[in-house]
């Protein structure tokens, strides 16, 4: 059981690492946000599920497990809304997309 928990947390650390590398390397703000979604999904969920298993199996603390599950639910429900708001706000504030971008239907439709 402890090995399953280690594996979950290891996966989550790997995806958090990939997300941070992506945030540093991506060409513009929007692509950086795409990479940060990596951290906010698998990076967080692995640690939370590992924590639930650990507190339920080894600490015998049901309350802690339930609170971790509630944290996970709130995280999953709220983080896409924040991501959407940041992306829309950045676009309307005039953050430029990288020159590598192949198309921008949103900008074209706004000019019409």
């Amino acid at each position: 059981m402890i090995i399953a928990i280690y594996v979950l947390i290891g996966i989550s650390i790997f995806f958090a690492f990939a997300g941070v590398v992506g945030m540093l390397r991506m060409p513009d703000a929007f692509c950086r946000m795409q990479s940060s979604t990596n951290i906010s999904t698998f990076g967080v969920l692995g640690v939370i599920i590992g924590g639930i298993l650990y507190s339920a199996v080894f600490l015998h603390n049901a309350e802690m497990a339930v609170k971790l599950a509630v944290m996970g639910i709130f995280y999953i429900v709220t983080s896409p809304i924040a991501g959407h708001a940041i992306a829309k706000g950045a676009y309307h504030h005039g953050v430029k997309m990288t020159r590598k971008s192949v198309c921008d239907k949103y900008g074209e439709d706004m000019e019409k």
Binding site: A18, G22, M26, C31, S35, N38, K105
Partner: peptide, 22 residues
């Protein structure tokens, strides 16, 4: 999607082709 984006971020040539589609 997670595996795909992690692979893109870690690969040396950074194969991205960003854009906004409708």
């Amino acid at each position: 999607a997670n595996v795909d984006v992690a692979r893109r971020a870690l690969s040396p040539s950074l194969p991205v082709k960003p854009g906004i589609v409708k």
